[in-house]
Write a protein that binds this DNA or RNA. Structure first.
Lengths: 154, 154
DNA sequence: TTACATGCAAATGGTTTGCAACGCA
DNA sequence: TGCGTTGCAAACCATTTGCATGTAA
């Protein structure tokens, strides 16, 4: 499993960008290293123990800043709130419908992963979600024909 | 590419369940066949042309019913609203960051897909999201130890 | 005549924004 | 002194809910 960049490198990255390493920001980052895919609310709740006067605004803005820098990744599911994780390459998530935990799993061989997850690790896979993000051929061709209009398919 | 079940089969499925084939429901289903991964708002907006007095409530409840029956799949992204599609097996999505379109793509060979998407179809893949849903080994072992508490990881 | 559906309006709740106060560079 | 940062409160907005009305079997 790939590891996220270490915390010192993250703090260094912020300094490079001229961003201040406030106690609140350091604590949000620390919690991201300690927790498994927390929601903003979970980060806020735990921060409140050490910083009673911290605001949700600060937690949200810090998470947004880290996301914009590519340091954290936001995971959205069907439920209301997003989950956050430190960016790592080459991994997938296994979401347990029973306990709700989000597990990081290796994805060296994506094709066989679903099968191997079951036979070797005991995960029962009901559903796989695979999303690609990037630029489509039409847009890459310079068409810049982007529209928000609804298009038919099928 | 796998196709979704045809519309007559969907309507038959509702009848089997004792659900009424109201004009509103038939129109929502029809639009799901005509549109590419629409949001609830897009469905509502287009329905309003044919049914001026349709309510958002009906659109949302119909989409939820279809989702509960496994007929439609809900896709959540970082932006606010969910997108809906008729359920199909063995396919992935390519989300164009330039035009915003969501493309269905084949995923016969998930391992090589990212590479093939680029070399054979011209898609530039920046990011792949792969999510598994199911039951983890601990829960499958009958522990039913599910909690909503935050757990540490890494 | 009863259970299911619809639609209006209000509530919900995660997230964002406006703005004044704060504090490091 | 200036600008980035914080935090309170209000706004935002997709979605859900309460409830009265409508409708089909």
């Amino acid at each position: 499993m790939n590891e996220p960049m270490d915390m010192e490198a993250v703090l260094e990255r912020l300094k490079e960008k001229g961003l201040r390493l406030t106690p609140q920001r350091v604590e949000v980052i620390t919690l991201l290293y300690q927790l498994s895919h927390p929601t903003a609310e979970q980060v806020y709740s735990l921060m409140s123990k050490k910083f009673p006067y911290v605001s949700q605004t600060t937690v949200y803005s810090t998470l947004k800043m880290l996301k914009d820098l590519g340091i954290v990744n936001e995971l959205t599911y069907g439920d209301r709130s997003s989950h956050f994780e430190l960016t790592q390459e080459e991994h997938a998530h296994f979401n347990c419908k029973s306990c709700g935990e989000i597990y990081d799993v290796d994805v060296k061989d994506a094709r066989q992963l679903q099968h191997l997850l079951h036979t070797e690790q005991g995960y029962q896979v009901d559903f796989v979600r695979l999303e690609f993000y990037g630029t489509c051929p039409a847009c890459a061709a310079g068409g810049e024909a982007g529209t928000d209009s609804v298009r038919t398919a099928h």
